[in-house]
């Protein structure tokens, strides 16, 4: 877990004067499932496309498996699977012809894995790509990307076009790949629920800037939420706000809902000292953690994730 498979340093990219990426620096740890979060137009796709070799960065560099992408050496991509949000592939090819092309281009092509994944995803191998639904195209692209025995997998909004059943199968496949082959996965998503379940690290991008990266456990550990009641309400709001690590206090009827960061146990002890009638921890989803985190960092959480 110490070494990283992808290192980015001050990656910058602009489109006609508009900054799409501003000096992005981050690392994807070996063997991790890294979730990239951000609103539409934040630069997620641009970042992933640069890593996949499709776009060239204006400045900065990125190393994949220790090799600089700027060098354009195609061999970097032998072990790099990429699934875009809307895979185009070759419309006039049949699915089987796409796989033939994969076999011809990748030296580590795994035919049996390809066949079994096709069965698993119920891919019609004889159909032409142009007649496939978007969901099926995504699945074909995933099968292609997995059959090359990748060490790094880059997925751009992969679950967006899938129905719930297919989405679950997709996530399961990714998990199996990461667990079984030790493949490192970098994927962008709008869906915080998917990320919460599958990712171990996340990075947040907004308007081309990287806000923060964190291990998911640490992120979730760092913020907690508690609900307290005081039997005679002796104007405790002020006292609550003075507690260590408090980010926000919201009064809902008789209850106070406190969001705080830092050590849970110590905070609880401090709360008991105020003599509340009832005290209970409230579940905090990743989304809640996000909202508080963004507020803390001075960003308004004005978009839907």
């Amino acid at each position: 877990m110490n070494s990283s498979v992808i290192d980015m340093y001050k990656l910058t990219k602009s489109y006609e004067g508009l900054m799409a990426l501003k000096e992005i620096s981050m690392s994807i740890p070996q063997g991790s499932i890294f979730g990239l979060i951000g609103p539409n137009g934040a630069g997620k796709s641009t970042l992933l496309q640069i890593l996949a070799g499709i776009l060239l960065p204006d400045s900065g560099y990125a190393n994949i498996l220790g090799k600089n992408i700027r060098d354009l050496g195609p061999q970097i991509r032998q072990e790099l699977g990429y699934v875009p949000d809307v895979p185009h592939l070759y419309p006039s090819f049949t699915v089987n012809e796409m796989f033939t092309l994969g076999r011809k281009l990748y030296k580590n092509w795994d035919e049996s894995k390809c066949r079994s994944l096709c069965d698993y995803f119920e891919i019609p191998a004889g159909k032409r790509v142009r007649n496939l639904s978007r969901g099926l195209k995504v699945r074909v692209a995933l099968v292609l990307a997995l059959s090359i025995r990748p060490r790094v997998l880059i997925l751009d909004e992969p679950t967006a076009g899938l129905d719930p059943v297919a989405r679950r199968a997709f996530l399961k496949t990714i998990i199996d790949e990461a667990a079984g082959q030790g493949t490192s996965i970098l994927y962008s998503s709008h869906n915080l629920n998917d990320l919460e379940q599958t990712a171990d690290h996340i990075g947040v991008i907004k308007q081309g800037e990287l806000l923060f990266t964190s291990a998911l456990d640490e992120l979730k550990d760092s913020v907690h939420k508690t609900q307290v009641f005081f039997s005679p309400d002796h104007g405790s709001a002020r006292a609550l706000k003075a507690l260590p690590g408090v980010i926000q206090v919201v009064q809902q009827g008789k209850a106070y809902i406190i969001t705080a960061s830092g050590d849970r146990q110590a905070f609880r002890e401090a709360l008991w000292a105020l003599d509340p009638a009832l005290l209970e921890p409230i579940n905090l989803s990743l989304e809640d953690v996000f909202i508080t985190y963004m507020k803390q960092e001075g960003y308004s959480y004005d978009y839907t994730i």
Binding site: A52, I54, I76
Partner: peptide
Amino acid sequence: RSGSLNFLLSTPVSRKD
């Protein structure tokens, strides 16, 4: 350019190839 180039560029071939 209608999209498949993205696929092609992500495979282990160079632009020269």
